[in-house]
């Protein structure tokens, strides 16, 4: 598996190095450190976005996209450094310690008032993580059934407005600091279900949550304002146009879709909530 991934990356790099010649001009003098692209991710960074919490490997969807963008902007693998930030660090006023920050930030108009986002690099479905017990007790992938569940979510995510707007549960949801706490609450039976982006939900249900189950997904095309992930940058960051150019290129060439297919392929086949 590793070998294949490495091979795929190598192919990717050689393929993009041709374009990189003139890409470097755009980013010149606009990065934190000249000649280096500083990318931030979460602490820890989660599967399947970053494998083994090691973004330097280029493994995992976001890590792979990051290196692809860097390549397009004219930064070789050696010219990329990684830093870790929390959500709060990413939005605090003052100088940032990254050129862009990549940890499943959903693009919203409210947030755009404070920070800049790149064009979206992923459009996520939202998915319902629950346990086999709850499914056995009769929970179904219908809005009516979901309304009656006790809900939880991570407090810093855009899952919360989605939860209120789309599901509108009959009792107030409980909110938590991070994935680990939500899982603890699910396993303790304090909540029946939690709303996550689909790839995260898949991973949690399969690996982390004992007896976890994926009840269904809200596909992006069903939502009025689908959850789109963008790279977060300091407001008015001149680098934005270069990043957007690189992303546009990746999207049009189909490279982005290829990376997505490679790392997030399992996301298909999850029942759609009616």
């Amino acid at each position: 598996m590793k070998l294949i991934v490495g091979g795929a990356l190598a192919v990717l790099f050689t393929a993009t190095s041709v374009v990189a010649q003139d890409g470097g001009a755009c980013a010149k003098g606009k990065t934190l450190t000249d000649g280096t692209l500083t990318i931030a991710t979460g602490n820890p960074a989660y599967y399947p976005w970053v494998m083994n919490d090691a973004p330097e490997s280029g493994e995992g969807f976001e890590a792979a996209v990051a290196y692809a963008i860097a390549e397009k902007m004219g930064f070789g693998q050696d010219n990329v450094t990684w830093v870790r930030t929390s959500f709060d660090e990413a939005i605090q006023p003052g100088a940032k310690n990254f050129d862009f920050n990549m940890q499943q930030y959903s693009i919203t108009p409210e947030r755009e008032e404070m920070v800049d986002f790149s064009l979206p690099y992923y459009t996520s479905a939202m998915a319902v993580l629950t346990t086999q017990n709850v499914v056995d007790a009769g929970a179904e992938a219908t809005l009516d059934s979901l309304k009656g569940l006790k809900w939880g979510a991570v407090a810093t995510t855009t899952a919360i407005p989605m939860l209120e707007d789309v599901i509108d549960p009959s009792s107030d949801p409980l909110l938590y600091n991070d994935n680990a706490d939500v899982n603890a609450a699910i396993m303790a039976g304090q909540i029946d279900a939690a709303l996550y982006d689909l790839p995260t939900a898949l991973y949690l249900s399969a690996v982390v949550v004992e007896g976890g189950a994926l009840l269904g997904q809200f596909p992006p095309e069903q939502s009025e304002s689908p959850d789109q992930f963008g790279l977060l940058m300091e407001q008015d960051n001149p680098l934005k146009e270069c990043v957007d150019a690189a992303l546009t290129e990746l999207t049009e060439s189909g490279e982005l879709a290829a990376i997505e297919a490679q790392w997030l392929a399992e996301a298909t086949g999850v029942p759609v909530i009616k």
């Binding site: 939005i91 008032e113 404070m114 407090a155 810093t156 409980l174 938590y176 706490d181």
Partner: peptide
């Protein structure tokens, strides 16, 4: 108590902080 789920004022402020990217 917000650490274990209840959405009291501190947690609610955290949710708003995240939605508006603003402290």
């Amino acid at each position: 108590l917000s650490f274990i789920g209840p959405v009291e004022v501190f947690r609610q402020a955290g949710v708003y902080k995240s939605l508006y990217a603003n402290f």
